[in-house]
Amino acid sequence: DYYKILGIPSGANEDEIKKAYRKMALKYHPDKNKEPNAEEKFKEIAEAYDVLSDPKKRGLYD
């Protein structure tokens, strides 16, 4: 669930989505986080943001 990945409610607005994305992206960026699964988690976060930040894609997802 993209909302769960970003840690936001399904009714989140654009600003909340952007803030959550930035926070999670910094936390899991492969250059900052050396955990083995950090890169995979970072890709999931980027995919979630891509879908939820685009009103058309978000509409299809919801």
Rank of each mutant, 00 (worst) to 15 (best):
D62N: 06
Y61E: 14
K32V: 03
P30D: 13
N33Y: 12
P55L: 09
Y21S: 02
Y49H: 03
D31R: 13
G59M: 06
G7V: 01
N37A: 14
P30F: 09
A12E: 02
I17V: 11
Y49E: 02
E14L: 10
D31G: 12
A25C: 14
L6E: 04
Y28P: 01
Y21V: 02
P9S: 07
K57W: 02
P36G: 11
Y21C: 03
E35G: 12
A48G: 02
S53Y: 02
P55T: 05
K19G: 12
G7H: 03
D62P: 15
E14N: 02
K23L: 13
N37M: 14
A12Q: 02
P30T: 14
I5H: 01
P36M: 14
G7T: 03
Y2P: 13
A20N: 07
K32G: 06
K41L: 08
A46Q: 02
Y21E: 02
D62H: 05
Y49F: 15
D62R: 03
A25T: 13
E35D: 08
P9K: 04
L60P: 12
D15A: 05
K56S: 07
G11E: 09
Y21G: 07
E35W: 07
L52E: 01
D15I: 04
G11Y: 05
A48T: 01
K19H: 07
D1K: 10
N13I: 03
P9R: 05
Y3S: 02
E39W: 11
L52I: 06
Y49L: 05
R22S: 14
K43R: 14
K43G: 14
A48E: 00
E35C: 08
P9H: 11
A20W: 00
A46K: 13
E44H: 15
A20H: 06
K43V: 13
K19V: 14
I17C: 01
K56G: 10
F42K: 10
D54L: 01
Y3F: 06
K18M: 13
L52T: 02
D31C: 12
G59Y: 02
N13C: 11
N13E: 08
K18F: 06
I17R: 01
Y3M: 00
D62L: 06
K57V: 02
D54E: 00
I8D: 00
A25M: 10
Y61N: 15
I8T: 11
A12K: 01
R22M: 14
L26Q: 15
K4E: 02
F42N: 11
D31A: 14
K56L: 05
E40R: 14
L60C: 09
E39A: 12
K56T: 10
N33W: 09
I45E: 02
E39L: 15
G7R: 06
Y28E: 09
G7Y: 01
E14I: 13
A48L: 00
F42Y: 09
K57Q: 12
G11V: 06
S53E: 04
L52S: 01
G11L: 04
L6N: 02
N13K: 03
A38T: 07
E47Q: 05
M24F: 03
I8G: 00
K19P: 01
K34I: 02
K19W: 14
Y2G: 02
S10V: 07
A20E: 04
H29C: 13
S53T: 11
S53Q: 03
Y21Q: 03
K4N: 08
A25P: 03
H29E: 13
P30A: 14
E40P: 10
E14P: 04
Y21I: 00
A46R: 11
N13P: 08
I17H: 00
Y2H: 09
P30H: 15
P36F: 03
K43S: 13
K4G: 11
Y21T: 02
D1E: 11
K32L: 02
A20T: 04
G59R: 06
D62K: 06
K57Y: 04
D15E: 08
S53W: 01
P9D: 05
K34D: 06
N13F: 01
M24V: 11
P55R: 06
V51C: 12
A25K: 14
D50V: 12
E16Q: 11
D1M: 04
P36S: 09
K23T: 15
P30M: 09
A25I: 15
I8W: 00
L6S: 02
E40V: 13
H29A: 05
K41I: 09
K4P: 00
E40L: 15
N37S: 12
Y3H: 01
K57G: 06
A25N: 11
D50C: 08
K27T: 10
G59K: 07
V51Q: 15
P30C: 10
E16S: 08
E16N: 06
Y49W: 12
E47A: 05
F42G: 08
K34R: 10
E44C: 15
A12M: 01
I5E: 09
H29K: 12
D1W: 07
Y49R: 08
G11R: 05
H29R: 12
A20S: 08
A48N: 00
M24T: 06
A46H: 04
L60D: 14
P30S: 11
A20M: 04
D1C: 12
I8C: 12
K32H: 02
Y49A: 07
